Amino acid sequence: GGHPVTTQMVETVQNLAPNLHPEQIRYSLENTGSVEETVERYLRGDEFSFPP
């Protein structure tokens, strides 16, 4: 991942996926670069990993 992630982006995802840890959200956003894509992954039931 190398996309810039803002606190705003993390908070937006958190509102839609409250049971995800912020670190999981941030890591996913760094890989996708997209709030929409991260939320899609969540709704699909994809696994969210923590940063290594």
Rank of each mutant, 00 (worst) to 15 (best):
G1L: 12
G1T: 12
G1Q: 13
G1W: 14
G1K: 11
G1I: 12
G1H: 13
G2L: 14
G2A: 13
G2K: 15
H3K: 11
H3A: 09
H3Y: 15
H3V: 10
H3P: 09
H3Q: 10
H3T: 10
P4C: 15
P4K: 15
P4T: 14
P4H: 14
P4G: 11
P4L: 14
P4Y: 15
P4Q: 13
P4S: 12
V5Y: 12
V5P: 06
V5N: 04
V5H: 04
V5F: 10
T6L: 06
T6G: 04
T6F: 07
T7Q: 15
T7K: 14
T7I: 14
T7N: 13
T7L: 15
Q8F: 12
Q8T: 11
M9Y: 02
M9R: 03
M9N: 04
M9H: 04
M9F: 02
M9E: 06
M9K: 03
V10I: 15
V10Y: 06
V10C: 08
V10E: 05
V10F: 09
E11F: 10
E11A: 12
E11I: 13
E11N: 12
E11V: 11
E11W: 11
E11D: 11
E11S: 10
T12C: 12
T12M: 15
T12V: 12
V13P: 00
V13I: 08
V13S: 01
V13L: 04
V13H: 01
Q14T: 07
Q14I: 09
Q14W: 10
Q14E: 05
N15Y: 13
N15A: 15
N15H: 14
N15F: 14
N15E: 13
N15G: 12
N15L: 15
L16A: 09
L16I: 14
L16M: 11
L16D: 03
L16E: 05
L16G: 03
L16N: 06
A17D: 02
A17L: 13
A17Y: 09
A17H: 04
P18L: 08
P18A: 07
P18M: 07
P18G: 07
P18V: 08
P18E: 05
N19W: 09
N19F: 11
N19M: 11
N19Y: 10
N19A: 10
N19K: 11
N19Q: 10
N19V: 06
L20R: 00
L20Y: 02
L20C: 05
H21A: 10
H21F: 07
H21R: 09
H21N: 08
H21M: 09
H21Q: 09
H21P: 03
H21E: 07
H21S: 14
P22D: 06
P22W: 12
P22R: 10
P22C: 08
P22T: 09
P22Y: 11
P22F: 10
E23K: 08
E23W: 11
E23D: 15
E23I: 09
E23C: 15
E23Q: 10
Q24I: 03
Q24V: 03
Q24W: 04
Q24S: 03
Q24M: 05
Q24C: 07
Q24G: 01
Q24E: 04
I25T: 01
I25K: 01
I25E: 03
I25Q: 01
I25C: 04
I25A: 01
I25G: 00
I25M: 00
R26N: 03
R26D: 02
R26A: 07
R26G: 02
R26Y: 10
R26M: 09
R26V: 08
Y27E: 04
Y27C: 05
Y27P: 00
Y27K: 04
Y27A: 06
Y27I: 05
S28A: 10
S28D: 10
S28H: 06
S28G: 02
S28F: 06
S28L: 05
S28V: 04
S28Q: 05
S28I: 05
L29Q: 02
L29T: 01
L29K: 00
L29E: 00
L29P: 00
E30K: 07
E30F: 10
E30R: 07
E30P: 00
E30Y: 11
E30L: 11
E30G: 07
E30W: 12
E30A: 12
N31L: 15
N31R: 11
N31V: 14
N31M: 15
N31Y: 13
N31I: 15
N31C: 14
N31F: 15
T32Y: 06
T32F: 05
T32E: 03
T32W: 06
T32M: 04
G33C: 07
G33V: 03
G33A: 06
G33W: 06
G33D: 03
G33R: 07
G33P: 02
G33T: 04
G33Q: 07
G33Y: 06
G33I: 02
S34Y: 01
S34R: 03
S34K: 04
S34D: 07
S34Q: 03
S34W: 02
S34V: 03
S34A: 04
V35T: 06
V35H: 02
V35A: 06
V35Y: 03
V35S: 02
E36W: 14
E36L: 11
E36V: 10
E36H: 11
E36M: 12
E36S: 11
E37D: 09
E37T: 09
E37F: 07
E37H: 07
E37A: 11
E37Q: 10
E37S: 08
E37P: 00
E37C: 09
T38A: 02
T38Q: 00
T38M: 02
T38G: 01
T38W: 03
T38Y: 01
T38V: 07
T38H: 00
T38K: 00
V39H: 05
V39A: 05
V39T: 06
V39D: 01
V39W: 09
V39Y: 12
V39M: 14
V39L: 14
V39Q: 04
E40R: 15
E40V: 12
E40S: 13
E40K: 15
E40F: 15
E40C: 15
R41L: 09
R41P: 02
R41S: 10
R41Q: 10
R41M: 10
R41N: 07
Y42R: 00
Y42C: 00
Y42M: 03
Y42P: 00
Y42T: 01
Y42V: 03
Y42Q: 00
L43I: 10
L43N: 10
L43G: 04
L43E: 06
L43T: 07
L43A: 07
L43M: 12
R44A: 10
R44S: 07
R44I: 05
R44M: 08
G45L: 02
G45M: 03
G45E: 02
G45I: 00
G45T: 01
G45A: 04
D46T: 07
D46Q: 10
D46N: 08
D46S: 07
D46E: 15
D46L: 12
E47S: 13
E47N: 12
E47K: 12
E47P: 12
F48P: 01
F48C: 03
F48T: 01
F48A: 01
F48S: 01
F48I: 04
F48V: 02
S49T: 12
S49Y: 12
S49I: 14
S49N: 11
S49M: 14
F50G: 02
F50Q: 03
F50L: 06
F50A: 03
F50T: 03
F50E: 03
P51D: 05
P51Y: 09
P51S: 05
P51Q: 04
P51N: 05
P52S: 09
P52E: 08
P52M: 09
P52N: 08
P52T: 08
P52I: 08
P52C: 08
P52G: 08
